[in-house]
Computed example of a mutant assay.
Amino acid sequence: MTTAFARHKLTFVVHPAAPATQPLSEVWKAITPAAVLALDEFSDADAAAMQAAGVRVIVAMHASARKRWREITTPEHPLGAAQARHLARTHERLGYAYPDDERVGVFADPRLEGVREVCAELGLPAPDVRTVPLDPAAAAEAVQGWLAADPPVTGICAFNDEIAMAVLAGAARLGRNCPRDLAVVGVDDVPGAAVAQPPLTTVVRDFDVDAEHYARNIMAALKGERLPAGAVDDGVRLKIRLNLRPAHAERSPMWTGAAGCGAARSPTRDPRPAPPPAPRCRRSARGTGGRTRAARRRPCRRG
């Protein structure tokens, strides 16, 4: 964000909105910003204070349904949708690992909505949503709940990579194997995702594209120009590693039935015809005139 705004000759200043920090109204008076962005929508009191301090543009990056202020949308639900589409290729019931930090609910809720939309589109049950703390024992409880469901939940869309790795830790604590028993997809591709056990498949977004989108929209607002309609195409992509089980189509015809976490596989008869019996060992010798005559039968010796 700092680099993107600098290209437009603007300085990007970050102020955390926490009880222990300086009141927002004092910040507006001290620096008189040209524009203010926030993760969520503003209260009426904050908005009035900003306008009184001379702030020309107020932007809520993740506003609720009320949307009282100018909004520049940050697309979050495509992240959840990408997770669900990937898992739905090989899993019939999905779960969502929700964070236990209410401060990130503004990100988690639209991602979860993306998962729900894909499940509805593909005719799958609604995702089984469980809160997963960053604690192996607590995560194991969530994993146990997914596996005990009927039918079991075998594909997990996690809020981010940290929550995904907590799910992996919970599964390991229960003696479960990932991806054989449970497949997990995270978001963000943090450095630890590559060395997780197993390496974590994750959804990646281009933050440079997002930052430039915000900078251009703020500049357009400051100039009184119309903001582009719709959300930014942020280049969401999957970084696939090794934590998904093989697709249904790739399973051996020798097995049928459920292949989810902890589900028993029942052997069935192979429908393929049995191979013909091996021919008896015979030797032949070629005589004169190109004729072939059977040699005297001898014990067949195989080297």
Rank of each mutant, 00 (worst) to 15 (best):
F5C: 08
F5K: 06
F5S: 11
F5Q: 06
F5Y: 14
A6W: 05
A6D: 07
A6S: 12
A6V: 05
R7W: 07
R7F: 08
H8P: 10
H8T: 08
K9D: 13
F12Y: 13
F12W: 10
V14T: 12
V14I: 13
V14L: 15
H15A: 15
H15D: 07
H15C: 14
H15S: 13
H15L: 09
P16I: 05
P16Q: 09
A17E: 11
A17V: 10
A17M: 13
A18S: 12
P19Y: 00
P19C: 08
A20P: 00
A20R: 10
T21D: 14
T21F: 06
T21A: 14
T21K: 10
Q22T: 15
P23V: 05
P23K: 07
P23A: 07
P23G: 03
L24M: 12
L24Y: 04
S25C: 00
V27I: 15
W28V: 12
W28S: 02
K29E: 15
A30I: 06
I31K: 11
I31T: 13
I31V: 15
I31H: 12
I31L: 15
T32E: 08
T32H: 15
T32Q: 15
T32G: 10
P33D: 07
A34G: 11
A34F: 05
A34C: 02
A34Q: 12
A34R: 14
A34H: 14
A34K: 09
A35R: 01
V36K: 12
L37F: 10
L37N: 11
A38I: 03
L39Y: 14
L39M: 14
L39N: 13
L39S: 13
D40A: 11
D40Y: 10
D40M: 09
E41N: 13
F42I: 06
F42E: 02
S43A: 02
D44L: 11
D44C: 03
D44N: 10
D44M: 08
D44H: 08
A45D: 13
A45T: 09
A45M: 01
A45V: 01
A45C: 02
D46G: 02
D46N: 10
D46C: 01
A47W: 00
A47H: 04
A47M: 02
A47S: 09
A48R: 11
A49Y: 02
A49L: 03
A49R: 07
M50S: 11
M50Y: 00
M50V: 03
Q51W: 00
Q51G: 00
A52C: 01
A52K: 03
A52N: 01
A52E: 05
A53E: 03
A53R: 05
A53D: 03
G54P: 02
G54I: 04
V55F: 03
V55L: 08
R56L: 01
V57A: 04
I58S: 04
I58N: 07
V59L: 04
V59Q: 03
V59S: 01
A60R: 05
M61T: 06
M61S: 09
M61A: 13
H62V: 09
A63L: 00
A63F: 04
A63S: 13
A63G: 09
S64F: 04
S64E: 14
S64I: 00
S64R: 12
